[in-house]
Design a protein around this nucleic acid. Structure first.
Length: 422
RNA sequence: CGGGCUAUAGCGCAGUUGGUAGCGCGCAUCGUUCGGGACGAUGAGGCCGUGAGUUCGAGUCUCACUAGCCCGACCA
């Protein structure tokens, strides 16, 4: 990908009203474009990140047996009346056709998936079943805020599981919890599991996945030494107390919820009269679990968790590219041609070996190009210039490092491959 | 939804006691530069958020509305 061909441009300054890091940098670097409060378009660089996160999520959902599908965002009012949520869910966007017929714009998909699965599932032998989708969701939030962290339209992965017995549900629930932790780890962030405030006083399990960040909305008591964390809404521990798991001192902090899993029991299957025939010919109640990840929110949270004053610092697994090649300008046309040619050779060698490259071959001034590389935050920056060419080398600097060093042309591919694989 | 702040060129902003629109960046053309957003010259670009009102005259004063951001409440 050549920088000169990228239709988006970085901006010298972030939007004046952006306060959180994700709002600032995602817009300044041209990863997203704000259409309205809480509504963002995803642009080429941002979309690459979003797609990589989606891929990781797909892999982990498939690994626990999830089947991917894609549901409608436009939902029938009738189904929402059936579950008695039409008037109760205040974030529900309602819209009207030209004939006055009313619809819901999906904030979640129980009303769609339950009757859908019902139409295919008649025997206990058809269960358990887990289906998921990655789809745009709509919520009429009274206050959208913090860039892509809380939007009115956002991308979400939602999975629903169906079981004829509780034990089987609980086992799947645990598998989903582990899959979630793998997803966050693979995305380069560490998430902590907390019990949800809603689930704590009932028997139904319910958990949230929190990334620690000042931009978060939830108050947490957590241990920075181990995985222990509690939402202060239901916390039994306080900051300063020893961690019940490891004994280290607990701290008060903020977190952003990047996922939740919960037990729906038979709340929705009952509403739709969804049962299956059991071994004895009896009607069996169906238990549901629901498992959500805000995909666009997760991307924003990763920016919150990983940036410095110059820009974003993408984890390798989800960066818009593996390598950012910056070709500097030379004194004369002849050396410029040589540098461009050398850069192109490096680029082609990397690309043909499956390495993703963003090549800044623009004639812009050095300072601008280096600032852009920092802002965009690709994990590895390679500079090709007259100086490095003289040494038969490129300059190598990881986004997380302050010092650079030279790497010989013939060693670049191998070193990039091991850098990416790390 | 309550409270606060804001709205002037693509972006960031200035605009005095009310007198008819400016700066920086970016953009276009040319030239000089080239290891941290370099410089010079020329040029294009405005319904001053929208609508009413006060006034001889409104970017400026008044009111209403709309939009964005922040705090709070809310977040099935």
């Amino acid at each position: 990908m050549k920088m000169s061909q990228l239709f988006t441009k970085t901006k010298k300054s972030a939007p004046a009203d952006a306060e959180t890091a994700n709002a600032k940098f995602l817009q300044q670097a041209g990863f997203v474009y704000q259409e309205m409060a809480g509504v963002y378009s995803w642009l080429p660089l941002g979309l690459r990140v979003l797609r990589k996160v989606e891929t990781i999520i797909r892999q982990e959902m498939n690994a626990i047996g999830g089947q991917e599908l894609f549901l409608t965002a436009l939902q029938s009012k009738e189904n929402w009346l059936t579950t008695q949520r039409w008037d109760d869910v205040d974030v529900l966007f309602k819209l009207q056709s030209q004939t006055g017929k009313e619809y819901a714009l999906g904030p979640t998909a129980e009303e769609v998936i339950t009757p859908l699965v019902q139409s295919f599932t008649h025997s206990y032998k058809d269960l358990p079943l887990a289906v998921y989708q990655i789809q745009t969701k709509f919520r009429d939030e009274l206050r959208a805020k913090s860039g892509v962290l809380r939007g009115r339209e956002f991308l979400m992965k939602d999975m629903y599981s169906f079981h004829t017995d509780r034990q089987n549900f609980l086992e799947f629930y645990e598998k989903a919890k582990e899959a979630y932790l793998r997803i966050y780890e693979r995305c380069g962030v560490s998430a902590k599991v907390t019990e949800s405030s809603g689930g704590s006083f009932s028997k139904n399990p319910s958990h949230e996945f929190q990334i620690e960040t000042a931009a978060g909305e939830d108050d947490l008591i957590l241990c920075r030494n181990c995985t222990f964390a509690q939402n202060t809404e239901i916390a039994t521990k306080q900051s300063g107390e020893p961690c019940p798991d490891c004994g280290k001192e607990l701290a008060a902090s903020k977190g952003i919820e990047v996922g939740n899993i919960f037990d729906l029991s038979s709340r929705f299957t009952d509403a739709f009269g969804f049962t299956v025939t059991g071994e004895e010919g009896e009607k069996k109640t169906i238990y549901m679990g629901c498992y959500g990840i805000g995909v666009s929110r997760l991307v924003g949270s990763i920016v919150e968790a990983s940036h410095d004053e110059r820009g974003m610092i993408w984890p390798k697994s989800i960066a818009p590219a593996h390598v950012h090649i910056t070709t500097l300008n030379a004194k004369d046309k002849e050396s410029q041609d040589r540098i461009m040619q050398a850069s192109e050779e490096v680029q082609e060698k990397l690309i043909s070996n499956g390495i993703e490259v963003l090549w800044d071959e623009r004639s812009n001034s050095i300072g601008e190009k280096l600032a852009d590389a920092d802002l965009i935050g690709i994990p590895l920056r390679i500079i090709v210039s007259e100086k490095t060419l003289k040494e038969g080398s490129v300059e190598w600097k990881a986004r997380t490092e302050t010092e650079s060093h030279l790497v010989k042309f013939e060693d670049v591919l191998e070193q990039v491959q091991s850098f990416v694989a790390e």
